[in-house]
């Protein structure tokens, strides 16, 4: 008790106040978005002149918005699955390979992150036209995977670096083949990390706008793409409603990730 009662140094207090202010300033726009979504009028203004759930009703009645919502979820889940598979396999492969090829090739995974999305979008549009994937979910999933895979890969590198690889030796030594040893020994140790990586990929896909703009058709357009189209015509609180949904999904995702990574800690507290 005595230590918590001790006065904290002025510098620490000032630093704490400083970063809390900065954080608040950065999060304030989100508050504006959420508040305006409850506007009772058709004008996007802050603070709203009146409050109601009328725009939420509009959203749920709008086939176009609901389709876009479904598209975003489908593409997000698809991206999460493909990027996680590739990212996990890449990071795992590099850990167990003692050759030098992996070390040389690893930086290549960064390249998609370094190319401006506009260029990627145009290039992929032409490419997918050639191979006949234009207008499909697959084209946007693959484009988002290009971005999400490096992030999953780096999450997994850090997860695997904390894994005790002697366990893999022990499993194989006891007769577990490559697949069995991964499933029975590696996976249980890194599953939370894989979940977090997948969630990250999902959120990346949910937010991505530029490549989706190039690659989507009216039947595959995602929420950011539709929002952009709508804003160009009329600035009404529907955009705020949609944004609020996106924010909620992201926050829920982050909470899930926090819970996942601390699950063991949590279970120890409860038992």
């Amino acid at each position: 008790m005595s230590s918590s009662l001790r006065r904290e140094p002025l510098e620490t207090a000032a630093f704490r106040a400083g970063y809390l202010t900065l954080l608040a300033l950065m999060l304030l726009p989100l508050l504006v978005v959420v508040v305006t979504s409850f506007s009772g009028t058709g004008r996007l203004a802050f603070p709203p002149e009146s409050y109601s759930l009328v725009w939420y009703g509009e959203f749920l009645d709008s086939v176009r918005w609901l389709d876009a919502f479904t598209n975003s979820i489908v593409i997000g889940v698809g991206t999460a699955l493909v990027a996680t598979l590739l990212g996990v396999m890449g990071a795992f492969g590099q850990e167990i390979d003692d050759g030098s090829l992996g070390t040389v090739l690893a930086p290549l995974v960064l390249i998609p992150l370094l190319i401006p999305p506009v260029i990627l979008g145009i290039t992929l549009l032409m490419y997918f036209n050639e191979v006949g994937l234009r207008g499909s979910y697959a084209s946007i999933v693959l484009a988002h995977t290009l971005w999400a895979t490096p992030l999953v890969y780096f999450v997994m590198r850090s997860v695997f670096s904390r894994f005790d690889w002697q366990q893999l030796d022990a499993a194989q030594d006891l007769g577990a083949g490559p697949v069995q040893s991964f499933v029975y020994v590696v996976l249980p140790n890194v599953k939370h990390g894989i979940f977090v990586g997948g969630l990250l990929a999902f959120i990346i896909s949910l937010q991505e706008f530029v490549m989706a703009l190039f690659l989507s058709t009216p039947s595959t357009e995602t929420i950011p793409v539709l929002a952009w189209t709508e804003i160009r015509q009329a600035l009404d609180p529907m955009v705020s409603v949609v944004s609020t949904f996106l924010i909620v999904i992201s926050v829920v995702g982050i909470l899930l990730a926090v819970v996942a990574t601390n699950l063991e800690w949590l279970s120890k507290q409860l038992s």
Binding site: D164, Q166, Q167, D169, A170, A171, Q172, D173, L174, G175, A176, G177, P178, Q180, S181, Y184, V185, P188, N189
Partner: peptide, 30 residues
């Protein structure tokens, strides 16, 4: 995994997410 040799490691490398019994039974399960 195809050799019938078995190693006791320096840091023992027990599987932390399995019980003691599951650890010992692992090779038999495989």
């Amino acid at each position: 995994y195809e050799r019938n040799t078995s190693t006791v490691f320096q840091d023992w490398a027990l599987f932390p997410h399995k019980t003691v019994l599951e650890n010992v039974a692992f090779g038999l399960k495989m």
